[in-house]
């Protein structure tokens, strides 16, 4: 089971990084979303994998480590906030500049390209 989860984390991270290296804002944001899936899962597994051990006191012992779970819970919510801020920035960039490219070319210094 550990190998499955580890390979899933690796794959999500790899797809996330690949998408972050694309040249338009939307794929980059999707890439960041994938990367945060991978990172959240990775942080979660630092508590080691356990089955049928939800950290609810009074249930069957042993309990899963609750601390990584609490940290990842807040991380999931913050990832949403970050994605939302990036989205409005991407929209703003696209509407202001007329294109949604991530990289600025060496020739244009901040001068917005005319939309084709």
């Amino acid at each position: 089971m550990e190998a499955l989860v580890a390979s899933a984390i690796g794959l999500l991270t790899a797809v996330g990084i690949y998408m972050m290296l694309r040249l338009r804002t939307f794929p980059v944001i999707l890439g960041l979303t994938f990367l945060s899936y991978g990172v959240n899962l990775f942080l979660f597994t630092s508590g080691r994998l356990t089955v049928n051990a939800a950290p609810i006191i009074g249930r069957t012992e042993p309990y899963a480590d609750p601390l990584p779970q609490a940290l990842v819970l807040t991380a999931i919510v913050i990832s949403f906030g970050m994605t939302a801020v990036l989205m409005i920035m991407a929209i703003g960039g696209h509407l202001e500049a007329g294109h949604d490219k991530v990289n600025m070319s060496d020739t244009d210094d901040d001068t917005p390209e005319v939309q084709s």
Partner: peptide, 10 residues
């Protein structure tokens, strides 16, 4: 990156 983090997780 993926191989590194997957290996680290494993």
């Amino acid at each position: 990156a993926g191989a590194g983090i997957g290996w680290l997780a494993y």
